[in-house]
């Protein structure tokens, strides 16, 4: 019961925050709302006993990536004129339509499961030990491949930002 109440609180806050993200005029507000949205989702993860996932969400997305996003936004520090006025464009209308379609589809799809009995979890679900075990046994190959991909991305970033020799520094 209490879980359900908390779930609805966090879910509502996540949705509201997400709406602010797309509708706020000021990108800083969008970023701040996105942080709030990520935190709400992390809280929902906690309610689903996925503690590790929740904390990683906070640590990596809310704690690190959003700081970088804010860093860039502050560096640009757009003024009100540069942001332009609020207009209704074809793209926006299409976007709203697509989101509406998605929500409708999801509602139709998931209402079936709405009253399904809760699945009981095996002990240790969501702990670091369990996640680690699964990650390094069942999903070892995808995991390593993702890390290779990330490594490639890092090297790419280094190459892109490196200045040519004799280019000042």
């Amino acid at each position: 019961m209490i879980q359900a109440i908390f779930f609805y609180i966090f879910a509502a806050s996540a949705v509201v925050m997400a709406l602010v993200v797309v509708s706020a005029r000021n990108p800083i507000y969008s970023a701040a709302a996105l942080i709030g949205c990520l935190l709400s989702v992390a809280c929902i993860f906690v309610l689903q006993s996925a503690h590790l996932l929740a904390l990683l969400q906070v640590l990596v997305y809310a704690g690190a990536i959003m700081v970088l996003v804010l860093f860039v936004l502050m560096l640009l520090n757009l003024s009100r004129d540069e942001l332009g006025r609020r207009r209704i464009t074809v793209r926006r209308v299409t976007g709203v339509y697509l989101v509406g379609a998605l929500v409708t589809l999801m509602t139709i799809r998931f209402t079936k499961h709405l009253w399904a009995p809760a699945v009981s979890l095996e002990p240790g679900f969501g702990t670091i030990e369990e996640v680690g075990k699964i990650l390094y046994t069942k999903y070892l190959l995808p995991f390593e491949m993702v890390s290779l991909l990330l490594l490639a991305a890092i090297i790419g970033a280094v190459v892109l930002t490196r200045k040519e020799k004799g280019d000042g520094r």
């Binding site: 904390l55 640590l59 809310a62 704690g63 702990t127 670091i128």
Partner: peptide, 16 residues
């Protein structure tokens, strides 16, 4: 059971 990560996660929010 994830105490250490909790500290990291929350303290990384302090910068905001």
């Amino acid at each position: 059971n994830v105490g250490l990560l909790f500290i990291f996660a929350i303290s990384s929010l302090g910068v905001y």
